[in-house]
Nucleic acid binder design. Sequence first.
DNA 1: TATAGAAATTTGATCGATCAAACGGTCAGA
DNA 2: TCTGACCGTTTGATCGATCAAATTTCTATA
Lengths: 321, 321
Amino acid sequence: MAEKVTIADVARHANVSRQTVSNVLNSPEVVKEETRQRVLAAVEALGYRVNAAARQMRTGRSRLLAVRIETTQDGINVFDRFLHGLTESAERSGYRVLLYTAADDHAEIATIEQLLGEFEPDGFVLTSTHHGDARATWLAGRGLPFVSFGRPWGASEVAHPWVDVDGAAGTEAATRHLLGLGHRRIGFVGWETGSGVGDDRRSGWSRTLAAAGLDADLAAETDGSSAHGQAAARELVDRGATALVCVSDAVALGALQVTPDVVGFDDTPVAAAIGLTSLSQPLAEAAARCVELLADRLAGRPTATHALLTPSLVIRKEPRS
Amino acid sequence: MAEKVTIADVARHANVSRQTVSNVLNSPEVVKEETRQRVLAAVEALGYRVNAAARQMRTGRSRLLAVRIETTQDGINVFDRFLHGLTESAERSGYRVLLYTAADDHAEIATIEQLLGEFEPDGFVLTSTHHGDARATWLAGRGLPFVSFGRPWGASEVAHPWVDVDGAAGTEAATRHLLGLGHRRIGFVGWETGSGVGDDRRSGWSRTLAAAGLDADLAAETDGSSAHGQAAARELVDRGATALVCVSDAVALGALQVTPDVVGFDDTPVAAAIGLTSLSQPLAEAAARCVELLADRLAGRPTATHALLTPSLVIRKEPRS
DNA sequence: TATAGAAATTTGATCGATCAAACGGTCAGA
DNA sequence: TCTGACCGTTTGATCGATCAAATTTCTATA
């Protein structure tokens, strides 16, 4: 039942030593072609697979990437698609994804510390980075390999590899789209000032209006809920807005109760379901880039410092018109 | 930077042997209380953590549970909440969750085989079980510990521990709810016959109507899309239906375009967003039960064979009425 | 043909934890 | 006083892979 094939079994079967088998698998260039073939045949015949624990014990490398799985807050999030992409890309690079949970940044650091002692992940992927992120500082402080999905917001931050989606480029596209529909008074329903992501998304809207010679005066702040989004939209429409760019689909959902020409952000299933035009983040690509940056770093290859991806506008019509 | 504390360091610090440290951690009852305290103090002082690879090498156990991360099909699914619950519960039992992807059952088996050779997960969690599931047969065939989220549909299946949500009980509650609102002609928008989950959900609807002395003749089949849901709903309404119980939120979303009294299934973010009454699966509890069954089995404790949980009806009013 | 040097392969040690067995000390009973 | 049982602890071996160094085999040149 539990047939465990070791490197010694393969060696015996191929009439070579353990080390030669190891070399065939890890440094094929030092092995004579004929021997290589013979060993590979034995590997195949016996169904041999390297034992990760034994390898890790000797090399110190685990081929594991650790990622925190986030709680689905209001249910409208997008993390699962990123995680799927991450797992897929990691597999392609010979890594596996190990999950952990944490209530907050502080707890996450403690968990990372624990993981380092126990499973020794080779790298970490941080998500939902924010201003003054303690996790990035902590990881960078001890030279641990990691990438963040989300750029390091704020000036005093440590430099580290990151991947992010260009929110400003997204809202610029959204604003252009609404301008193209003939709107001249376009509002922005955002989050409270100070959130990096929110400010970034707002900036794309304002700069586009400015470039078109229009005032970017119709902006409102919300706590991110649909209810607040609706209230904010009402206010902006009362002040003359005829269309709205929103910082998220959740907020857009509320805004949609007020006026039809609304663009959301994240292209969540909700947007698709209700026919909301929204900005779609290239999550699979973002995940792939994260793995790429991390894998390059871990392999000692020269790595890019970051990647900024552009979201795409998914134009929909409300189904109930 | 990379300070690695081994069991030998702790032993030296506490003036005992390696084995005593190991005993303190694994079989505290054989160690004298005084020694135990001293060792624990040393563990604390040095920040020692067992190295999972070394332990696994000797014991053969990895404290890893492997789960396949599913692709988000139409985006309206619920897997991420289950996964989060699983990770959390696993941590509580001293396990970590390892992710993998697979295109289909066949590929999944191959991946499991690979994982067994490399990371030697202690157990597996299967999701989306279906009629004649090759994965369950394969795992059971070689005596590997696993639980499925989803019961073994079909009679010829091997017996194995499982956790599932009682779909029939859910649709029964939904049907009762609609009866309570005064409806007498209640239809069911389902999937094609043959899917275990779909048939189960349909049965709750039909048996409740039968119990109320009503005909359960208004049933339609769809491919699960909103578009088909809408068409099917139209047909049922034309045939006299005044309310509809749906097999999923996706289908319900389509049905909602036809008539307001609709109940969905899964309580996805979409349902919450559009004010759709829906059945909520206790996913966190389901995940906890999965871990419980698996952990008991792995610890050699007597285990229950399965758990069937009841979904709860979340009643909402359409926001746009 | 001999031999330096490169190429290919093998040997022994090691990573950190746990198992199995041995060990020393204490105590009850003969 | 001696024997055997018991408790708490220690010692040596082991899991499977890889590193470092040693060894053998091959190749090229004098």
